[in-house]
Amino acid sequence: MSVPMPTSPSSTLQSGESHLHPFLTTRSSLNLRRRLVNALVVLSTTLAALFAAGLLIYLLYYVLSQGLRYIDLDFFTQLPTPNGEPGGGMGEAFQGSLILIALASLMGVPLGLFTGIYLAEFGRGPFAQGVRFLVDVLNGIPTIIFGLLAWVLIVIPMQTFSGLAGGFALGMIMIPIVTRTSEDVLRLVPRELREASLALGATEARTILQVVLPAARNGIITGVVLAMARVAGETAPLLMTAFGTTFWNTDVTQPMDALPLRIFQFTLSPYQQQVNQAYAGAFVLIVLILLASLAVRLATGGFKQR
């Protein structure tokens, strides 16, 4: 084998042409430029991060600190006062939100969970791949589209806004979230567990229902909580479905209030009292979502990995 060697050392070197150690030859203009570019990148990305984080933290802090001032017990238990008179709360919004989330879960959790089971357990081949893709795409559709859907399907035929329509719209939003998280956690259940159960003679259905699902229970609950937190903050699809009200209401065929809806309407209100309550509502909403995120992080051990 003939291998050409690196240029052989030339002897034409003037003595004194620096016996610089190679590790010390950093002061060339090229290396200076490289270090300068590197420093500039570090600096600018740091600034970008500080600016982005600062802006967002400021927003969060501002809304939270404003909201905290107007929170009291009445805020959770009383109805809004008419014409922005002092006092009152948005109790009906909390009540409505709970009912709407329950309705949405009634629709979104079974549909999402079973679709997730299908994808995780039987989901091979192009059909399942297509379903998966469609579910992901569904997740990115603007939520107001689902409001529009419920409006056309339910509100217009019934000739009234209703909690039912709102629940339907929110349910549509929950489906992809529940589907994807439950598929992911079901896939994490060890093979051996399934095989052991099948080897003991259990049917496939029994294995999934009594072995696999319980093993994945925490993960599935996490996904459901995540989906609930997500729809708890949805406003757009409720505008044209649940519509909102300022009275107690448990009748799902009638207009129903929701926390984000009330925040929206009071934000635009001409009365300072209602604007204050909008801040208070925003405070509660943010805290709820913070708690849900924290719970999910803790349940999935998300803090350790990164």
């Binding site: 240029t7 050392p9 030339s10 070197l13 042409e17 620096s18 016996h19 610089l20 190679p22 030859t25 060339s28 203009s29 090229l30 290396n31």
Partner: peptide, 20 residues
């Protein structure tokens, strides 16, 4: 002197001895 030349110069000086 550009960087490549500096490096080559150094190499010529050091190569005969190598690096331990």
């Amino acid at each position: 002197m550009d960087q490549a030349t500096v490096e080559q110069t150094n190499r010529s000086v050091l190569r005969p001895m190598g690096m331990s």
